[in-house]
Design a protein around this nucleic acid. Sequence first.
RNA 1: UGGGGCGUAGCCAAGUGGUUAAGGCACCGGUUUUUGGUACCGGCAUUCGGAGGUUCGAGUCCUCCCGCCCCAGCCA
Length: 564
Amino acid sequence: MSDAETPTDDAPRDFIRDIVHADLEAGSVSGIVTRFPPEPNGYLHIGHAKSICLNFGLAHDFGGRCHLRFDDTNPLKEEMEYIDSIQEDVRWLGFDWGEHLFHTSDYFEQLYQWAEVLISDGKAYVDDLSADEIREYRGTLKEPGRSSPFRDRPAEENLDLFRKMRTGEFADGEKVLRARIDMASGNINMRDPVLYRILRGHHPRTGDQWCVYPTYDFAHGQSDAIESITHSVCTLEFEGHRPLYDWLIENLPVPTQPHQYEFARLELTHTVLSKRKLIHLVRDGHVAGWDDPRLPTLSGLRRRGVPAAAIRDFAARIGVSKSNSVHEIALLEHCVRENLNKAAERRMAVLDPLKVVIENYPDCETEILEAVNNPEDESAGTRNVPFSREIWIERSDFMEDPPKKFFRLGPGREVRLRWAYFITCTDVIKDPSGEIVELRCTYDPATKGGQAPDGRKVKGTIHWVSAPHALDAEVRLYDHLFARPDPGAEGDWLDDLAPHSLEIRHGCKLEPDLATFEPGRTLQFERQGYFVADPDSTVDTPVFNRTIGLRDSWAKIQKKAGGK
RNA sequence: UGGGGCGUAGCCAAGUGGUUAAGGCACCGGUUUUUGGUACCGGCAUUCGGAGGUUCGAGUCCUCCCGCCCCAGCCA
């Protein structure tokens, strides 16, 4: 057994890996080959990421390979745009298919030939029944189906008809090719499933070369066999198709014998993962596009600032099983915070500015203070932060009549300005309407850097930005797309869209060096959360997206106090 | 009431008949802290959907029952 096959303590363990391990040990396969087979009819989302991590992870863990295969058997739904975005997303997630990029459409000729084999063997026939009639004849869940009057057509006639289907002698939907299996099967998928249909759509890769297209059932397993896939891993809803998958592999002269295994697809709270619903959100303008940072699409998560490594970690933690389960989005958020805590440099940003004038600080003077970039990573170094007489602080960091548990600024109270000085509030200035417009404070020159030589302690540390040096920015505060964990559980799912999933703040005050942050770079705004520079940024106004807020135990305390 | 699956804590999830039912998230306490962040420590299932049975011994085996999910596209 090679190292790659030896499970280690931190290697993920699940029933699929157990099967692979057993297969390798028993010698039923000599190496493993998996595949990720998306249909290019939409953008990839975090549910696909689970499958990608599983398939590529399996290949990696057991020293095999994983193919990227576009399952492009339906020209009516598939587009080049999706083929491109899918490759970009898989790469971004951190996986590499090397030379192994395939398309089911690469196999159309072979698949067609195998269909003829089935016909010659009397195991498939051309049916003239309409779609509606086929449905009627199929029976129901509790009643067996009935045979089509065309079921016993001689092989020669079927072959002739099928060839004519290919050469375009029939209209769309006029005829189909069906497997001849068992119309009385308890498994409806075995009641003579359709193998080929006539479709005159322009295929993104084969153009107008074909007018007959294989169905998923006829294409998938055979494509697996062509590519020597050993473990064809798919989601639970295909479980009932496995007997058909096996039947086709057994009845066709395919080069290898792949096997299908099924696992539960990912479900997440506070969002939707169905392609239909995601398309609806995009097309109806509920979000700004496929890469809207509120969407669970990989492009949306990327723009939101979620690191690929956090998604991989999430996939590893949720495991792989066969029970339908809904994961709390809090676990994903935990993975994001854990990753970013180590990786993101810190900066100060004031999102809801309140002016503070430090009365005993010399006018027109600017000091350069040193701030640590990341206390979790010494190699991130330090930076210079300008300090002056007028600064901005967060409005929520001041209370005129604070409760005793409030550690921030209040009249007569002293706090530490992060990396700067202790200041004490001496006066509160209000406008005629009574709104606080400015604070007057004094600072203690001896506390430079944030330490008092006399050893006196201060309960709170707040962030700030020097007013004359501040950079004005737009900050987009994102929250869960859906207010309830299970959108649509009661009533229309669209009614559960959270009313404030995006709050845009203008005139936020940032440390000056943030002007040059390239889009996609993540950072932490101290005491607030993780943010990422958005591609909408311009030279004049940088734009930052909130990826996720920091844990906020003060908010929890307040909530508890208020809830009494 | 055809066929196929699944039921272990609030949410996931190990467990493959033999000491006190892993682990993570969430939650609740506490320690540390120049982020009310992080880190660290502690707490959190006398019981595995239910009832019987087999066994010296059952979450694991058997029987029955209950609940949930998937399948009646010429979608994948």
